[in-house]
Write a protein that binds this DNA or RNA. Structure first.
Length: 563
RNA sequence: GCCCCCGUAGCUCAGUGGACAGAGCGGCUGCCUUCUAAGCAGCGGGCCGGAGGUUCGAAUCCUCCCGGGGGCGCCA
């Protein structure tokens, strides 16, 4: 890889010039050739100016001399610029090497080893089984699945897990509400008042008939909801390896065991009739109640037991994805696990800001209890899973997302999913056309890749070169939207190439080189879309201009008043 | 009062210390006899919320302030 080559060259130059290596490592990053900065730029001269005690430009000049004496591969020239940048200008051969790398690696291109062999348990979604998944929850579905893919792309063994809270007071409330509907009554004020319980009660009666008890109703209901959630997740293409029952923790004695163990370790005390755990000893803002004065455990206890169970099942690192509305619980759980002797910071908790739904420029309230709920299934009734997924993956999870139902459900150009899928369809179309004309790719080593000199071609190869880093960073930062950003940039580069560079043309040699370039693009784009859980179609339906006009003009938009 | 996240173009958002800050959408203008125009190109559009500080260098790090969202239960 060229980065390592340039880095080695810089290291040798530092040594030859008797300069120290920066402690933080030699800074080297892709540059922008269009700005005249060359292909790769290093700020090493600025990094070491203090240690050397000379001006960065002077240092850079000295390094330049050494670099020229022993240059990296594909070296054209190196320039000193600005305050002391070292800009490496390379011949396009380095990019032709990238093309070969991509093709040789195939679907392993972009894979890394930073998590090789790590056994990671990733828990996400875990919505209470008291109603269907709401639309905003789709964010955790898409983000969680993509993070799982990213961790696996870095070599981890990843287990997708869903924690089913089939015990506790929320479920009791749900059971009471369902039972009320079953008996034709209104649910309690503080119960679940959504319409879906009316339908569910009807199904309950159809399946179990009369004489169902409240306990049976709750039992049947939570099972039916879990089944529904599982089907919705199936529709969007997400599969969990384990559906873990909270009740099993109670019944198996693990909940009681956690309390006993914390007690044995000396972190439990009594106060005001309740039993508390001293989480403040491990960084929590205050201690927490373990057992209420009525003798029942708080939610925290099964939560601790659950994470302990994950470790017991052989997972060495735990990651949970939670909505930001639970951020106050992070420290308590981590502190309790630390009290039990597990590593600090376990589980790692990824907090995501919540989703706001908007329609016709107005916020749509999301409340499972109130009843005006928009479910993930509702979204999937209107758009295909690719649109839903990519929309959730457009931005970082540190920002609250506004999910505009009008935009998402319209087949308009505001939907980036079509833009990126179209790039893939165009690649497939080129392949089809080539086959039609009887043009086949010759073995790569017989093809003259040096014919690829067009700015569009080089831009595309630079994007491919950047892909492995984009994936590695996305995995490290648990930030799948970085892959989305890469895909959008890449699609832009491809569309430009497609427009300006005809692949199948009169020049056989150039056609060969471009067919291989298209193949490398297919590999990269298909892989990236795969990480995001978005399909890579070979064809796109032709968009009817009339439909597009309709889609672009949703009701309720501010616009010019009619005359 | 305390804790977490955010504030970047008209709108939605990228940009985890580097060179004149980017994209999409919207607006205006061009480009289809040739691999699907769900495309490409151009034009316009910015005190990066504000003030200090650290640094050779800050949208990025620190402090304070302002604004928005979320959370501070013997609910989950």
């Amino acid at each position: 890889m060229i980065r390592e080559e340039i880095e080695a060259c810089l290291r040798a130059a530092l040594k030859a010039a008797r300069f120290p290596e920066p402690a933080a490592g030699i800074a080297l990053a892709p540059a922008d050739p269009e700005k005249g900065h060359g292909e790769w730029a290093s700020t090493v001269a600025m990094q070491i100016q203090k240690a050397v005690g000379r001006r960065p430009r002077e240092i850079a000049e000295a390094l330049k001399t050494e670099i020229e004496a022993a240059p990296p591969p594909h070296f054209d020239r190196v320039e000193v610029a600005g305050p002391g940048f070292l800009n490496f200008f390379l011949t396009p051969g380095w990019l032709h090497d990238v093309l070969v790398d991509v093709v040789v690696a195939g679907d392993r291109y972009g894979r890394g080893e930073s998590l090789a062999g790590r056994r990671i348990n990733l828990e996400f979604v875990s919505a209470n089984p008291t109603g269907p998944l709401h639309a905003g929850g789709g964010r955790w579905v898409a983000v969680g699945d993509a993070i799982a893919n990213l961790l696996a792309a870095q070599g981890a063994v990843v287990h997708r897990e869903y924690y089913v809270n089939d015990a506790g007071s929320q479920l009791d409330s749900f059971g009471r509400s369902l039972f009320a509907r079953y008996e034709g009554r209104e649910p309690p004020e503080d119960g679940y008042r959504g319409e879906y319980l009316v339908e569910m009660a009807a199904r309950l009666r159809a399946e179990l008939g009369d004489g169902v008890t409240e306990t049976e109703a709750q039992e049947w209901g939570s099972r039916a909801v879990v089944e529904q959630i599982r089907e919705d997740l199936e529709r969007i293409g997400v599969h969990f390896d384990t559906w873990f029952s909270e009740r099993a923790l109670h019944e198996g004695g693990e909940v009681a065991e956690v309390i006993r163990e914390l007690d044995e370790r000396g972190y439990v005390y009594e106060q005001d009739g309740a039993r508390w755990v001293r989480t403040s000893a491990f960084g929590d803002q205050r201690d927490r109640v373990l057992v209420k004065s009525d003798g029942s455990p708080t939610y925290l206890v099964p939560d601790i037991a659950y994470h302990r169970d994950k470790f017991a099942r052989g997972w060495e690192h735990l990651i949970d994805i939670w909505g930001a509305d639970h951020h106050g619980q992070v420290k308590s759980l981590q502190a309790a696990l630390e009290a039990l002797g597990y590593a600090t910071g376990e589980p790692e908790i990824i907090l995501g800001q919540l989703v706001k739904l908007e329609r016709g420029g107005e916020l749509v309230r999301l409340s499972r209890r109130a009843g005006d709920i928009i479910t993930l299934a509702d979204i999937l009734d209107e758009v295909d899973p690719d649109v839903a997924r990519l929309t959730f993956l457009l931005q970082g999870i540190d920002t609250a997302q506004t999910f505009d139902l009008d935009v998402v459900t319209s087949q308009s150009m505001e939907n980036p999913v079509y833009y990126v899928q179209y790039a893939h369809a165009r690649i497939a179309s080129i392949a089809r056309k080539a086959a039609e004309r009887g043009v086949t790719r010759r073995p790569l080593e017989e093809v003259d890749l040096s014919l690829l000199q067009h700015p569009r071609e080089l831009e595309l190869l630079r994007a491919l070169a950047a892909y492995p880093d984009a994936v590695a960073e996305a995995a490290e930062l648990r930030a799948p939207h970085r892959v989305t950003t890469w895909v959008r940039d890449f699609a832009r580069a491809f569309h430009g190439f497609y427009r300006d560079c005809r692949v199948i043309g009169d020049d056989d040699e150039l056609t060969q080189a471009r067919l291989w370039l298209a193949e490398a693009c297919r590999i990269g784009l298909a892989d990236a879309l795969g990480l995001l859980g978005v399909s890579a179609p070979d064809e796109m339906a032709r968009l009817d201009p009339d439909d597009a006009d309709d889609a672009d003009d949703p009701d309720g938009n501010d616009g010019a008043q009619p005359a």
